[in-house]
C-alpha cells in the first residue's frame, strides 16, 4: 500500500511586497512511499525537503501537482488525525510542562482525554523524559525538546510520521535511542518519513532514500542501490605488477589506482571486474583477495550532487 504519494508537485514562492521575485522550491516532484517503511529525503540546505513536507501537511500550498496521504487527496484536514509531525526548530509555549505539551497537542489531534492521559507516561518513558515531564519546557535543553517533540508526534498513535531533523541537538546516545524508537515504530507497521542531514544515521535505518537538489528529485532507491552503484573493488596481489599490465589496463579507460600490493578500481559492472582480473591473470599476477568496497551514503550523495553540478 502506498502511504505517501506526490505527482508533479511544484512550488514557487513569491517573495517581496511589490516586486515579487519568484523562487522555485520544488519542481515536478513525483514520489511514492510504501507503508511500513522508513523513507528518507536527503538534500543540501534549500533543496526543497521541508517544502515538500509542508505541502504534504498543507502548511504550504502547491503551485501545481497533487499529493495524497493514505489514499486521501490533499489538502485534507481529517487525514491529519492519522499523521504525526515533528517540525525542525519547533517551539512550545514556555509555561507548559512536557506532559502539558503532550496533553495540549493530543487533544488538538482529537484524541479523547482518557486516551491522552494513558499515553503520556509510556511515551515519556519511551523517549527517556519521564522524570522531567513535570518540568517547564523553557528549562529543557535542545535534546530534551527533541525528545518531547518526538513524543508529541506520537501522541495520536499516527500511521504516518514526518520527522524533520529529529536528532538535531541530540547527543550520540540519544541518537541511538531515537533510531531504536524509529525501528520499533517501523516494526509496528508505521510509515516514517525522515528529513535529515545526518547521512550516517539515515544509512543505518532507512529502507529507501530519495535525493533532492534545487527542488528536483535526482534519485530514489534503497540504501544498497545507492551505495553500490559505481562500486569500488580492491584487488590484492603479490608484486611485482608488470609494466605491460599497466599499459594494457590504461587502455581499458577505467579509474585505477595502484598501491604496492593493492589495485583499487572504480567499476561500473562485474564485466569490468572480470576484464581486470583476466588481464592480471594474463600477465601471471597472483591474486590474494578481491574485496568490494561500498561507498558510504554520504559519498554516494556527494558524488551524485557533484555529477549534477558538472552535468
Amino acid at each position: 500500500m502506498i502511504a505517501i504519494s506526490s505527482t508533479s508537485l511544484s512550488k514557487v514562492y513569491r517573495n517581496g511586497l511589490l516586486n515579487k521575485k519568484p523562487v522555485t522550491a520544488l519542481t515536478d516532484f513525483s514520489l511514492e512511499v510504501e507503508s511500513g517503511q522508513i523513507f528518507s529525503l536527503l538534500g543540501p540546505n534549500g533543496a526543497g525537503k521541508t517544502t515538500f513536507i509542508k505541502m504534504l501537511l498543507s502548511l504550504a500550498f502547491p503551485t501545481s501537482g497533487s499529493a495524497a496521504i493514505l489514499g486521501e487527496q490533499l489538502p485534507n484536514v481529517r487525514i491529519r488525525s492519522r499523521i504525526g509531525y515533528l517540525p525542525e526548530n519547533h517551539r512550545y509555549p514556555g509555561y507548559l510542562t512536557g506532559e502539558q505539551v503532550l496533553r495540549l497537542f493530543g487533544r488538538l489531534t482529537g484524541v479523547p482525554h482518557a486516551a491522552v492521559e494513558s499515553r503520556i507516561t509510556p511515551l515519556m518513558q519511551m523517549v527517556g523524559m519521564d522524570q522531567w515531564k513535570r518540568m517547564k519546557v523553557k528549562k529543557y535543553s535542545k535534546g530534551m525538546l527533541q525528545r518531547v517533540g518526538l513524543a508529541q508526534a506520537l501522541i495520536n498513535e499516527p500511521e504516518v510520521i514526518f520527522l524533520d531533523e529529529p536528532t538535531d541537538g541530540v547527543d550520540p546516545i540519544g541518537r541511538k535511542e531515537i533510531r531504536d524508537i524509529l525501528k520499533d515504530l517501523k516494526n509496528q507497521g508505521k510509515t516514517i518519513f525522515l528529513n535529515s542531514h545526518l547521512l550516517s544515521e539515515v544509512e543505518l535505518i532507512s529502507d529507501r532514500v530519495a535525493i533532492l537538489d534545487k527542488g528536483k528529485l535526482l534519485k530514489t532507491g534503497t540504501v544498497d542501490e545507492l551505495t553500490t552503484e559505481g562500486s569500488r573493488f580492491q584487488i590484492g596481489f603479490i608484486p611485482p605488477l608488470p609494466d605491460a599490465f599497466r599499459v594494457e589496463a590504461a587502455a581499458l579507460v577505467l579509474p585505477l589506482s595502484y598501491e604496492p600490493e593493492v589495485l583499487t578500481a572504480e567499476l561500473r559492472s562485474t564485466q569490468d571486474l572480470n576484464r581486470i582480473i583476466d588481464l592480471l591473470r594474463k600477465h601471471g599476477v597472483e591474486l590474494t583477495s578481491i574485496t568490494r568496497q561500498r561507498s558510504t551514503l554520504e559519498e554516494s550523495f556527494l558524488n551524485l550532487l557533484k555529477r549534477e553540478v558538472t552535468s
Partner: peptide
C-alpha cells in the same frame, strides 16, 4: 516552529 505544530493537527 509553532504554527507548524498547530496546523499539522486536524484543525
Amino acid at each position: 516552529g509553532i504554527v507548524d505544530l498547530y496546523l499539522s493537527k486536524p484543525i
